[in-house]
Design a protein around this nucleic acid. Structure first.
Length: 174
DNA sequence: GCGTCGATCTAC
DNA sequence: TAGATCGACGCG
């Protein structure tokens, strides 16, 4: 099937639909030299609103979390441990601060490696996910079976939120 | 202003 | 199992 660019409406749904929906989709990165690379998404995690203590928005609306309060289809990046840029895609309607963390793409397992491969930096913050920009998503109709588990590295949020089955992995990849 | 810590990865 | 490395956040 010929790849089609995902419509912005894809992201304006609940993050618990978008996160598994992104598994098997293709993330496209246009680099500064014009080179375009495509990577199939193999792993995602959902972060869902202020009540989700693992979500950065649980701290409220700040300069850092601002973009999550916008409508779906924008990029939320942040620096972690002083060296890794995490790639997130904002989902849902305005004032519902949710985002999907891209934890893995084909050939690169782990969100830090994803950010490094895609050469992210702070200038991606708030950018639209669109072919006119540097990052967008395509579908070629491939829909792998999905494995679900709890989220990684969010123990600080307490067991209620750590145990949510909000991590999605392409089964063949596992 | 200052201390703490993090949605990670790598090497020892 | 600890170190890299720095911005956001909380406290004062």
């Amino acid at each position: 099937m010929k790849p089609v660019v995902l419509d912005p409406s894809f992201f304006k749904r609940d993050v618990l639909e978008v996160a598994p929906g992104l598994i098997g989709k293709i993330i496209v990165r246009k680099f500064e030299n014009g080179e375009i690379k495509r990577y199939r998404i193999t792993e995602t995690e959902a972060y869902r609103g202020e009540e989700d203590l693992a979500c950065h928005a649980s701290k409220g609306r700040t300069q850092r979390t601002e973009v999550m309060y916008h409508q779906g289809g924008k990029i939320y990046v942040y620096l972690i441990y002083g060296m890794y840029w995490m790639l997130n895609l904002v989902t849902g309607e305005p004032d519902h601060p949710c985002a999907v963390l891209i934890r893995g793409i084909e050939g690169f397992s782990g969100p830090g490696k994803v950010g490094r491969e895609l050469r992210l930096d702070k200038t991606f913050y708030g950018e639209d996910v669109a072919p006119s920009k540097r990052i967008w998503i395509e579908s070629d109709g491939y829909e792998p079976d999905i494995w679900v588990s709890s989220r990684i590295g969010v123990e600080y949020a307490g067991t209620e939120w750590t145990e949510k089955p909000w991590r999605f992995i392409a089964k063949e990849n596992k």
